[in-house]
Computed example of a mutant assay.
Amino acid sequence: MAALIDAIDIKRKAFFEFENAPYYCLESDISTPTARGGQTLVHLKMRNLLTQAVFQKTFKAGEKFKEPDLEIVQASYLYSDGDGSHFLDQASFETLTLSENMMGDDLELLIEGAIIQLHKYNGNPIGLQLPLFVELSVSYAEPGAKGNSSSGSVTKNVKLETGLEIAVPLFIKEGDKVRVATETREFAGRA
């Protein structure tokens, strides 16, 4: 039998099962009552790993959740086609496929050979977890105009090798490698 987790023990980045689906905790907030006899409540912002839907829900502190039958495997991105995006499990060398809606817009951050963490629920691939940062090459950048940098916070838009467009400082040019924060999709420095 799977271990049970109390709602009060669910913290940010934890996995748990609710209504027969795996969830990932994005935020957790505990409110303790000021009156006697009041119940401690746990407010969770959570993502359904099957549908990618994000919502908030409040639970009583003593409510119990099962640990999901979730396996996280290292995989490298191979390619995408009409059937979905294909990954190679680094341990079993099995090809795993994620559908277009399982991928969402994460494809904008993947290049061939990128190593990611793939989620498998009950043995089937259901989604992926990107690293905090990815390194991508700039495929198109307009030249920065001289004299625009006096304020120090001037940016320009560039197009990366995956098609993603982000704002970068003026000194970044075509061919440079940049680090992109996967959570915010923002420039995080030169690679």
Results as ranks from 00 to 15, higher is better:
161 E>I: 15
160 L>D: 09
139 S>V: 12
182 T>A: 05
22 P>W: 01
43 H>A: 11
144 G>A: 15
162 T>M: 06
38 G>F: 01
64 K>M: 08
171 F>S: 10
63 E>F: 11
49 L>P: 04
26 L>Y: 10
113 G>W: 01
21 A>V: 01
98 L>F: 07
47 R>C: 01
64 K>N: 07
177 K>E: 12
154 V>L: 06
125 P>W: 03
98 L>C: 12
29 D>W: 07
155 T>H: 04
173 K>H: 06
172 I>T: 13
82 G>E: 15
180 V>A: 06
110 L>E: 15
41 L>D: 07
145 A>W: 10
134 V>P: 09
31 S>C: 08
170 L>W: 08
33 P>Y: 05
101 N>K: 13
15 F>L: 03
182 T>S: 04
25 C>H: 00
162 T>G: 10
20 N>G: 07
4 L>Q: 08
116 I>C: 09
56 Q>A: 10
7 A>F: 00
41 L>Y: 08
45 K>N: 12
57 K>A: 10
65 F>E: 02
160 L>T: 14
59 F>A: 00
21 A>I: 00
98 L>H: 10
170 L>P: 04
127 G>Q: 09
29 D>Y: 12
81 D>H: 03
156 K>H: 03
183 E>P: 04
6 D>M: 07
51 T>A: 02
188 A>N: 03
14 A>D: 10
49 L>H: 08
11 K>F: 06
2 A>V: 05
99 S>E: 10
44 L>K: 02
122 N>H: 07
181 A>H: 14
49 L>E: 07
89 D>A: 00
126 I>F: 02
180 V>P: 06
